[in-house]
Simulated assay, not measured.
Amino acid sequence: MLQYETKIDAKQLKGKDFLTLLDFSSDEIFYLLELASKMKKEQKDGKISNVLQGRSLGMIFENASTRTRVSFEVGMTQLGGHALFLSPRDLQIGRGEPISDTAQVLSRYVDAIMVRTNSHEKVEELAKYSTVPVINALTDFYHPCQALADLLTIYEHKGSFQGNKLVYVGDGNNVAHSLVIAAAKVGMDIAVATPVGYEMNSDIIEKAQEVAKTTGATILITNDPIEAVSDADIIYTDVWASMGFESEQKEREEAFGPFQVNHSLVSYAKSDYIFLHCLPAHRGEEVTAEIIDDSKHSVIYDEAENRLHVQKAILASVIK
């Protein structure tokens, strides 16, 4: 389990939206990680929790999902609650009903709303009109639940955040945004290498750098993957063409070729590096099979499992 002494009252998270890690203090993030670690151990020990008995989660999905849907649904079940899957076909929002109406109606039925959509503005609007907590399960700008799972996985395998260098190689997308914020919040050094023209959002970088000044983390932004990976403790990548960018697949393959995580690139990292990927992965594109399937370094399935535990911690905290 994590060994951090947080200075917060757990009750202060009740009713709070989980839209981006920028909205959470370092202590609040450490609290969620500690709770996730505790819940994970209890599950392994066969202990059953009914902390959310009689509570319901509305899950709005506007695009496909494996890990997000299963982990949230199973998480609510393990906590004694109920999760309701809602696609655009199931909701009037898919036929043009205002988000404000959907938010206010669902708030009368469920105890929290989880949403996965390509528009962060839509999540913010949903939270504005909802009277129950709203959880961002992925938008075009952020993927905070994934970043929290990444932090838990890194801690489990490295034993600390400070003194470790996390490197992200690939598209400057929602995963990269949340990862940089997460690293800054916990005081972990991070380097991000993207091709020219595929950099991260400059405003998000600036916000992360402001956080890093208070925690002692360093943030390196570069277009050189070798510079980024040098002396890395953790290497992370994502698909080259995320959902919504499939039409750019061919041009992205050309731009991202030098950024493939392969044997040559990881040779610049520390010998005991670990490899992370949020999945799904395209072997032979952003990462070679020999790297992602290497049991000595790849911890992608631990990372995927930890989605369940951090989301249980989020649900338990913001609902009850």
Rank of each mutant, 00 (worst) to 15 (best):
K44G: 03
A149C: 09
E5I: 14
L21A: 00
L152A: 13
K14R: 15
L148M: 13
D272I: 08
V310K: 02
R252S: 08
E290C: 05
S317N: 05
N262S: 02
M1E: 10
I291C: 08
Y142M: 04
L152P: 05
V167P: 00
H297M: 12
T222H: 02
T218N: 12
I314D: 06
F72C: 04
D302N: 15
K185A: 11
W240P: 07
D111H: 14
F141I: 13
V186R: 01
V180T: 13
H120P: 01
E206R: 13
A64R: 12
K41M: 11
E305C: 05
K14S: 07
R67V: 08
K38A: 08
P144S: 02
A232S: 02
A10M: 09
Y301Q: 07
L2W: 01
A83T: 08
L13H: 04
E206T: 13
I8T: 03
L22E: 14
S25F: 01
Q311Y: 03
K312F: 02
Y31G: 04
G81N: 12
A112Y: 14
Q162W: 03
G197E: 06
T194C: 14
V229D: 05
V180M: 14
G170I: 01
T102E: 12
E28V: 06
Y109M: 13
D17C: 00
Q104W: 07
L52N: 13
N262Q: 11
R95A: 06
M39W: 10
S56P: 11
E62T: 12
T194E: 04
G257I: 10
F30R: 05
D9K: 12
T102M: 04
A83N: 04
F18G: 00
N174Q: 14
G170D: 10
Y198L: 00
V167T: 07
T215Q: 10
